[in-house]
Design a protein around this nucleic acid. Structure first.
Lengths: 352, 352
DNA sequence: CTGAAAGCGCTTACAG
DNA sequence: CTGAAAGCGCTTACAG
């Protein structure tokens, strides 16, 4: 219980402690911390030694308050547990860390209510910007009202619902969903498939609409019919996809192939097919979307579209940091092309 | 360009703006915000109306500075892109949100160097506590030095390397790795398997050591021999596991079953087996660890150990919040039991 | 019930 | 090159 003036004490070490410890003013210590060239070399050395000795930890919140800056970015995701978004988040966090920012995380579990709560809570921490992959049905007006116009927003993956002026005041990073689904559909058609379903996803989600549009586009271009019961909705996960599989076969003519909303749905569908005695890759062709790690390792390996989520995360972070540097630049809408990854085994040619 | 005194202006709205807007002091506005019962009902109503009118956003950083409190928790993970940790993070974030805390995220990509950098950066934001799943090889001394003794640490999933007094001053939430691997091994033995390998993971990681110990324990108890070449190390992911598969068969006697470090490794091993013409679930028995979503949906479905990572995340967050409430309580070391999930098809009985 | 004042830990002109 | 002073947006005894 010595009362040494050294480290510890049950308070955090502050600038004032360092200043007192080496007989300079707080201003000088601050200049040392911020790397100012004004400070004398010897003074700097003394201060730095004292910082180390007392185990000083910079209080960035205080500095941000004084400087009216922010060193955090809010990352709000509709489903962090989904590997696609986990990869995305990893990419975001890597790039933000490189830029000196810290990630404030929020996962909304696809609930618009939670999204509002999470955004509200994170905004109280004054992030420099927000990266948002909205929950399904998330409304543009609501989101804008809680984010305000002062905090730059980067929208990822999905558009917001509700009418928005075409020059919405935020940046967007989207996958080329329509083109991707068109490529997948064309691939099946080239294999001679004719009765092709579009399976999974919710019709309400913009990415699902776009993928469906790409499918329709390819079918029309090839002069192929689309039966109403070839459009089955389901939650974008394996379990629900497996459960909905049967709906494809309630009516005739049954499809012999399906363009799936995403890989999770495709893997679930394959499972459901197996359970009904239909062997995917032999009796039925399946394509996915996302190229998650499992896609190449499933049995059979899945033909799909690569969207490289970690690289998208990096890109999203960089776009937002760019926006912080140039707040006045025109809002951007970047559409990332996706690439068809053909793994033959999930897509047999049509049996005559 | 009207100069109305209302909302906008290119500054954020502060307490002072609200106070001015309805002719009370900042103190009164603050009391309203914090829900003090001291304020007159009518005053409160006027202030609340003005808060709404000007679109006030609370600056929690400023409040935290003044009150010497914190409303964030740092979550530092060795591999966020791994679905196990993505689920864990989701559980943490949910529970923290419920407790009024915000998650500061950091992913270290299994690098001790990045872990140091990430911890240092997050600590400058003054988190109330840290939840850490350390990178492989992360050293207790180093970590403690950068986290300090003032910020409670909850260790998840792995122990830190280096000597630590048995009553380490932090809480720990660990899976019962040894018992889990023992259960898996016993399961195989009960099926008549005798030549059982332990496949995957790095010998340096504490969870791998524990699982291996459980395997050895069961083998010894059953009086079964363990050949040296039945212990194959690999990175804990599918790709490397598939690549290392061959090593099991370099020497005789070849194993006919493998207890795998985790599900990712098990799925990779199954892939590698297929590629060598060995059919897992018929010619070779495989068990995993974690029960990730894919485990039940692979072909064949995988017998594994359920560790319910989302629930672990929730539990970790609650333990840490508990610690914040009672800083002086004894450090805890909680070991969570894991449950054997038998999906017969990955584990055939031994062929006589 | 309300306001004036001090202060959380930092930064930044401004003097000297 | 260094220090005194003011201030970022909030909170909290303390008077009244």
């Amino acid at each position: 219980m010595a009362t040494d003036s050294t480290p510890h004490a049950n308070r955090k070490v502050t600038l004032a402690d360092i200043a007192a410890g080496c007989d300079v003013s707080r201003a000088t210590v601050s200049l040392v911390l911020r790397g100012s060239p004004l400070v004398n070399k010897l003074t700097r050395a003394r201060v730095e030694e004292e910082l180390r000795r007392q185990g000083y930890v910079y209080n960035r919140a205080a500095a941000n308050l004084r400087r009216r800056t922010s060193s955090s970015i809010a990352l709000v995701l509709n489903d962090l547990a989904n590997p696609f978004f986990a990869e995305f988040a990893t990419g975001v966090d890597e790039a933000l860390g490189g830029g000196g920012y810290v990630t404030l995380l929020g996962s909304t579990g696809e609930s618009v209510t939670r999204e509002q709560a999470v955004l509200g809570s994170l905004l109280e921490h004054d992030p420099a910007g927000v990266i948002l992959s909205p929950a399904e049905g998330s409304d543009a007006g609501q989101v804008l009202r809680t984010i305000g116009v002062r905090t730059p927003l980067l929208l990822f993956n999905r558009e917001l619902a509700g009418k928005v002026s075409p020059d919405a005041p935020w940046d967007r990073l989207m996958l080329d969903n329509q083109r991707g689904a068109r490529l997948a559909t064309e691939h099946l058609i080239a294999l001679g498939q004719k009765r092709i379903a579009f399976f999974g996803g919710h019709a309400a989600s913009s990415s699902c609409q776009q993928r469906h549009a790409g499918y329709v586009e390819a079918m029309k271009a090839a002069g192929l019919r689309i039966e109403p019961h070839w459009r089955i909705e389901c939650a974008p996960n394996r379990v629900d996809a497996a459960a909905q599989c049967g709906a494809l076969f309630f009516e005739s003519p049954a499809p012999t192939a399906a363009v799936c909303y995403n890989d999770a749905v495709a893997l679930g569908l394959m499972l459901g097919l197996y359970q009904r005695g239909i062997q995917p890759g032999r009796d039925f062709a399946v394509t996915g979307f996302d190229d998650i790690a499992e896609a190449g390792l499933s049995a059979p390996p899945l033909t799909t579209l690569a969207s490289t989520p970690r690289a998208r995360g990096k890109q999203a972070a960089e776009l937002l940091l760019q926006r912080l540097r140039e707040p006045q630049a025109e809002p951007q809408r970047i559409v990332v092309p996706v690439q068809l990854v053909v793994r033959g085994s999930s897509c047999p040619p049509a049996t005559a």
